[in-house]
Amino acid sequence: MSFPDAIKSVFSQYATFSGRARRSEFWFWYLFLVIVAAVTGILLGIVGAASLDATTGTLGGAFYVLTSLVSLVWLALLLPTLAVMVRRLHDQDKSGFFWFMSLIPLAGPIIMIVFYATTGTVGPNRFGQDPKVAQASTAPYEASVSPAV
């Protein structure tokens, strides 16, 4: 699954907590979140520096408007992020409630990274068909025959 396909897949399943998600879908989504965070951080820095009043040390209204918009964007990205996390756990035949392990201080995030990076169940499990098989069956046929000389 490519980067654009993964982003489209997550947005098309915006609040879908059922089914399974491949590792590529999950990690490309996190790459997308890192890019969004970098862009919004740079924008906030530029607008904050431009709207700073040096004499009083206060920020202008543009900074607060942009901060509100960035907060709305992150709020809108929260639900699909939780959904893809749960679907990734489903790929390993784990309940979505395993997500709460990430709240355990220190060890929880490490355990969750291991879960997210581990290969999913091969073949169908109680959460649905193997997403690798499902994607392979919808891919266009490519002949692997070498050309005749």
Rank of each mutant, 00 (worst) to 15 (best):
M1W: 04
M1D: 07
S2V: 12
F3A: 00
D5H: 10
K8G: 03
Y14M: 00
A21L: 09
R22D: 01
R22C: 00
S24Y: 09
F26C: 00
W27V: 05
W27T: 11
L33T: 03
L33W: 03
V34R: 04
I35H: 00
G41N: 01
G48D: 03
L52V: 02
T55M: 04
T56G: 01
G57S: 10
G57K: 05
A62C: 06
F63A: 10
V65I: 15
L66R: 03
S71N: 10
S71Q: 08
V73M: 04
W74P: 01
W74Y: 12
L75A: 04
A76D: 05
L79F: 07
P80Q: 06
T81C: 02
T81K: 06
A83P: 05
D91I: 13
M101L: 14
I104F: 04
L106V: 15
A107R: 03
I110E: 11
V114E: 02
T118A: 07
T118N: 05
G120H: 08
T121L: 04
G128R: 07
G128V: 08
Q129S: 12
Q135G: 07
Q135A: 14
Q135F: 13
Q135Y: 13
Y141P: 06
A143W: 13
V145H: 14
V145T: 11
S146E: 14
A148W: 15
A148Q: 11
A148H: 13
